[in-house]
Simulated scan of single mutants.
Amino acid sequence: MDVLFLFRIREHHEEMLEKEFPGVHFLFDRKTDDPAIETSEIIVTYGVDIDENVLDRAKNLKWIMVASAGVEQMPLGRIAEMDIPVTNVRGIHKTPMAETMLAHILAYKKKLRDVYDQQERSEWKQKIRGTELLDSKALILGPGAIGGEVGRLLQAFGVRTFGCNRSGRPAEYMDEMVSFDGLLEALPEMDTVISVLPSTPETKGLLGRDHFAAMKDTALFLNFGRGDLYEEKVLIEALENGRPAAAVLDVFETEPLPADNPLWKMENVTVSPHISSHSGKYIDRSLEIFMPNLRAYLEGKADQMENRVDPERGY
């Protein structure tokens, strides 16, 4: 049985897989034009290189393992028609992303940009006035694995956490919950608003002018989910109007962010080039999900594989 990797992993990872699964033929660091596409039973990919042409050629394909959480760039409708199981690595981003978000929140609250700017000018001034996280409120759009982890960290700082999902159902490390329908009413109370929502038909364009206008003029907005949560021009207009006060953005409508995009030059915006999930442990964590699933697959228990993706929902 052929298992085709469409990206590079380290040599010790290759050796580990070959040792753990001696009956499996692994093909590492291949491209979509490789003839092995036609014979491979399993394809391991980041998702962006799987299109309908690849699916047409993959005559023996039985399972797609996506080493990413997002699958919105894949032809999910066609995959559903072919009835090919898809799994992803949902949850492995929670530690690096939550730590990054917390770092940005603390940097904003403690005015660290001002501290760094003063150092550049060799200025000794003690008029910088930061604020505390204690007793503040944070709204987390998408309180799943990543949202729950940032909620846990914020609670340790004495922040009251509010989760927001489609139904308002309870979520771990959230003190209170609101549904998408109750979002507009909840926003005026929030000191920090964080989105880690995936891209789905329900989340595209979820935030509009009314939502940003409802935010505090001291609120920090962070988007670490997907760039189609709002129209970028609407966010820019909102930031120019002072609601929210500032934004930290890791995702954008167009990536890479064009050099002429106004967000680069806005003093109340931090542009992060979609790097919040980067970690030296990324592949290790991906394989920790892939290997048990591969064992289940080989044992004829594909229905028990973790992190199955619903192609119709997109997650």
Score class of each variant (00 low, 15 high):
Pro244Asn: 11
Ala245Lys: 11
Ala246Val: 03
Ala246Ile: 02
Ala247Met: 04
Ala247His: 05
Leu249Thr: 02
Leu249Val: 01
Asp250Glu: 02
Asp250Arg: 14
Asp250Trp: 12
Asp250Lys: 15
Val251Met: 04
Val251Thr: 03
Phe252Leu: 00
Glu253Asn: 09
Thr254Phe: 07
Thr254Leu: 06
Glu255Leu: 09
Pro256Tyr: 09
Leu257His: 12
Leu257Asp: 03
Leu257Tyr: 14
Pro258Leu: 10
Pro258Asn: 06
Ala259Pro: 00
Ala259Val: 14
Ala259Tyr: 05
Ala259Gly: 06
Asp260Asn: 13
Asp260Cys: 03
Pro262Thr: 11
Pro262Ile: 11
Pro262Asn: 11
Pro262Gln: 08
Leu263Lys: 05
Lys265Ile: 05
Lys265Gln: 11
Lys265Met: 15
Met266Ser: 07
Met266Gly: 04
Met266Glu: 12
Met266Leu: 13
Glu267Pro: 00
Val269Thr: 13
Val269Ile: 11
Val269Arg: 05
Val269Asp: 15
Val269Pro: 01
Thr270Ser: 10
Thr270Asp: 15
Val271Arg: 09
Val271Ile: 06
Val271Gln: 04
Pro273Asn: 05
Pro273Ala: 02
His274Glu: 01
His274Ala: 00
Ile275Cys: 14
Ser276Pro: 15
Ser277Thr: 11
Ser277Arg: 12
Ser279Thr: 09
Gly280Met: 12
Lys281Ser: 08
Tyr282Cys: 02
Ile283Tyr: 05
Ile283Gly: 01
Ile283Asp: 00
Ile283Pro: 00
Arg285Ala: 06
Ser286Lys: 13
Ser286Thr: 13
Leu287Glu: 00
Leu287Val: 01
Glu288Phe: 07
Glu288Lys: 15
Glu288Cys: 04
